[in-house]
Design a protein around this nucleic acid. Structure first.
Length: 269
DNA sequence: CTATTTGTTTATCC
DNA sequence: AGGATAAACAAATA
């Protein structure tokens, strides 16, 4: 489920427990979500530690527990975070951190998600090496254009899904961006002209911001003039043209687009 | 029983 | 070396 705005929403659930001490840790250490994670060290170190910060960057989250270390969480396809005084236990709750007032839960049925733990006072190297977020000043039109030219044979859909370039964008955001930019998802990146680079860049930032506004705080439903509400409905129609939407695998993922609305760019070199 | 899923990693080929 | 593509991973749901 989670893309950037949903990750922000889940991070805020645990953030409510800033300043709380972990009393007890319950986990399924053999679960796939702990691949590569020193789960035993983590469950030994966390009791007695206090939640200091709750961060999100693209689809990644990082929670600092002092003095124990840093808990990294990626939600994968079906992960979610919950927090509450008496949550209904679920067989897919792979990690539960108990504070005096609240249980902090990581739940993930499909287990494409991932938990990391890095002991010590400093943020882990993998976190510091994450690429610039779309809404940050470090994410520039120049760098984005250079990436489009480097990956000239990739369909635009694949570019937007690349987390090393567009951290936080997932399947629905990519479709929304291309629909608003009026660009067909199968356009090869190298065919775009400078005005298309600018348009795509602008719509990326716009969709990130709009998603944060609608979903980041209380997970509201996007308005009907987004593609979002129409893209998975059989018989769904484009809010702009009224004509049927099309679904097809592009860049390895099912992609929804509006055929006449989203244009194929003919290279004119 | 089959097909589908808001994601990432790995292998393979070019 | 780096880019492009497909398969694998797992479980719920329709």
């Amino acid at each position: 489920m989670p893309e950037q705005a949903e990750v922000v929403f889940y991070r805020r659930r645990w953030e409510q427990s800033l300043g709380q001490m972990i009393l007890r840790v319950a986990l399924h250490p053999a679960a796939r979500v702990f691949r590569g994670c020193p789960a035993a060290a983590m469950s030994a170190l966390l009791p007695g530690a206090v939640l200091q910060t709750a961060l999100a960057h693209g689809k990644q989250m990082l929670f600092h527990f002092a003095p124990a270390g840093w808990l990294g969480i990626h939600l994968g396809m079906s992960g979610e975070l919950l927090a509450g005084p008496s949550l209904q236990p679920d067989r897919h709750d792979h990690l539960v951190l108990h504070t005096p007032a609240t249980a902090l839960v990581f739940r993930d049925p499909r287990m494409f998600g991932r938990i990391r733990f890095d002991p010590g006072p400093h943020p882990p190297a993998w976190w510091l090496a994450l690429p610039p977020e779309i809404l940050s000043d470090q994410f520039t039109l120049e760098a984005f254009t250079a990436a489009l030219q480097r990956r000239k044979n990739s369909p635009l859909k694949a570019i937007l899904l690349d987390q090393s370039l567009c951290p936080g964008i997932g399947n629905w955001m990519a479709d929304e961006i291309l629909w608003r930019a009026r660009l067909h998802p199968e356009n090869r990146a190298g065919h775009l002209q400078p005005r298309h680079h600018r348009e795509l860049f602008t719509r990326m930032r716009e969709v990130c911001q709009d998603a944060l506004t609608v979903i980041g705080n209380d997970w509201g439903t996007p308005p009907d003039d987004w593609l979002f509400n129409h893209r998975w409905k059989d018989g769904g129609t484009c809010p702009r043209t009224g004509k049927p939407l099309v679904r097809r695998v592009v860049g390895g993922r099912t992609t929804c687009f509006s055929p006449t609305w989203q244009r194929t760019i003919r290279s004119q070199t």
